[in-house]
Amino acid sequence: MTRRSLLLSPLSAATIHDIAAAQQNRTPLRYLTPAAASELEALTTQIIPSDTTPGAKEAGCIHFIDRALETFDRDKRQLYTEGLAAAQAKRAELFPQSTSLAALAPAQTIALLKAVESTDFFQLLRAHTIMGFLASPDWGGNQLLTGWAHVGLEHRMSFQPPFGFYDKEAR
């Protein structure tokens, strides 16, 4: 079976308790400080941007990340802390006039992300953002099923054939 993300999942395994805790109803931030959340969200917003359709921000991916760091991925906190600090340092280097990630223009954030693209921090942030966008909303992200709407997945317990264009055409 060649499913890389299952093999190389950057996540650590949760206990049942973690899963239960992570799946509680949406609350305000539980692990991240509002300042850190706003800075991280500025990065996730360029990983899955909001353009003609909603992106990571509207889906609430930051809440998935907050849950992850609070519960099943608590051993990734240091990677986040250090990664965010390194991103801030990169920002200061590339854009000396800037004061925060949240205040960067989109093109600047993109340039910054390209500069850190190969780091473990970025790889995990990217994976978390995509997971937050596409996981079931129980995990804090994909709010209002934003991510599933984006890929065109209608979540129903029942469908009838034809399912798609070609099986319809073949009837």
Binding site: R3, R4, S5, I130, L134, W148, V151
Partner: peptide
Amino acid sequence: YPISFGLD
């Protein structure tokens, strides 16, 4: 599924 599709 959505996540595995997005990642892989």
